[in-house]
């Protein structure tokens, strides 16, 4: 089993290995992140607040996963994602740049997404979407963040982006 992450810049193989990841995917090179569904050769991740856009994205075969912008949960989208086998990505990088109070609010919202996904059977993955080296997290730190978010969700531990 290996852990993966997604960053907005190219991370060297050496640093990637040191951090404990099998691979850190680069946005623009390995996959595309967009606000709407578009035709691309690379896997697409759609970030949006609008449930209609996200439901449309989930139905598309080239979409690998979705991100709820500002962690605003739409249960219909999670239900559809579970049905279509798409991943709901949670952007951990958002937790890093904020105040303690704001972080608490964001953790609460992320937990709501996790609980809804758990209930409906959708897959959840944590990604950093780091835009620079200092915003990256090691696999160990990512696992601790997943414990912070997932620990009290029954029957679920860890939500890191992994393959088996």
């Amino acid at each position: 089993m290996g852990y993966f992450d997604i960053a907005r810049f190219g991370v060297g193989e050496d640093l990637c290995k040191r951090l404990g990841y099998k691979k850190i995917y680069c946005v623009g090179k390995d996959l595309v992140v967009s606000g709407r569904t578009e035709k691309t050769d690379l896997p697409l991740i759609v970030i949006s607040k609008d449930p209609g856009t996200l439901i449309g994205a989930v139905r598309d075969s080239c979409v690998a996963g979705i991100v709820f912008e500002d962690n605003e949960l739409a249960k219909k989208v999670v239900e559809k994602a579970a049905e279509m086998g798409k991943t709901v990505f949670l952007v951990v990088g958002q937790l890093m740049k904020t105040t303690v109070k704001e972080r608490g609010v964001r953790v609460g919202r992320m937990r709501k997404i996790i609980l809804a996904s758990r209930k409906m059977g959708a897959r959840v993955s944590l990604v950093s979407f780091a835009d620079s080296e200092h915003m990256l997290l090691s696999a160990m730190q990512m696992s601790e963040v997943s414990r912070l978010l997932f620990d009290d969700v029954p029957g679920l531990f860890g939500g890191m982006f992994y393959d088996s």
């Binding site: 404990g20 890093m96 620079s132 990256l136 160990m140 730190q141």
Partner: peptide
Amino acid sequence: FSFIKDLDGSPVGFFTL
């Protein structure tokens, strides 16, 4: 350590390896 992104005004990140 994952929440510390600033040291004396300059951006810095810490990775626990």
